[in-house]
Amino acid sequence: MNRNTPPPSKLKKRLTVVDFLLYGAVALFIFYAVYRVNDVLVYHWNWSKVLGFLVKFDDESEAWVSNLLLQGLWTTLRLALWATVLATVFGIVMGYWRTCKNLTLRIISRTYVELIRNMPPVVFIFIFYFFVSSQIFPALGIEDIDSEGAFASSAMFHFMFGDPQLFSNFLAGMLCLALFEGAYITEIVRAGIQSTEKGQWEAARAIGLSPFNVLRDIVIPQAVRKILPPLAGQFITLIKDSAIISLISIQELTFVATEVAATTTRVFETWILVGFMYFILCYSFALLFAHLERRAKRSQR
């Protein structure tokens, strides 16, 4: 051996007996579940009925258009995207306030976080829906937006917010979700800001940067790298939590799924399909975030 000898190769990882036993157990369980459903429950699978709710052939335009379930999925996506944007804004502002010296700002942000974190989401959503959206929206005149108006009836509006006639309904659901997830993002942002070393704040102040520049140029760029993983997790949680919004009759995926399950009576097929749709949605975002994280790490060096 000399200096130029390559390092010894790593041992290959092999599957052991324990691994095979585990695979066997999982396979057995699946087999048993299928057996129960087929032979004991005597359940007759009928996927075509449910799949028909994904897309339908529209006789008028003579083209395939999305049916209830896919429309629900689009609504879920729109809800989740807008709520993510809004929740991030809440999270950044409130998260910063949590770290401020000013007592009033700290009280406001702390109250917001504690109120939401210590209440079941369903309860919060009902309170929000019956007070805010049924009392305040009419007062603000949001109910009266002209669904035939130039902007509201434009394709752009439809693409971004869905059916204009359901806009106030959509807005209520979106706000609800954003407020709810914003509280969790607040805590992530606070942790990120506070995780920046004291020395970084001091050095930034010592070169005479204004408080705003200290945050924008020094603290936030370093915090963002640290909070990217928990933030990504929270965004995916937000997509899943959007299912709760179905309780206030927002016509997102879970809401339409209950309707489809009821009208078709194909409960198993509907929920398995909807579960699969959620999985695809969330998993693709997880992959996207993992990719972004890797890129952030690379640029950090």
Binding site: G199, Q200, R205, A206, I207, L209, I218, Q300
Partner: peptide, 20 residues
């Protein structure tokens, strides 16, 4: 206070360079 700090350079024990 920023105006004063711009006239006062400071060097720390732990350097505190901005790593990003």
């Amino acid at each position: 206070i920023e105006e004063v700090r711009r006239d006062v350079g400071m060097v720390f024990q732990s350097f505190n360079l901005f790593p990003h």
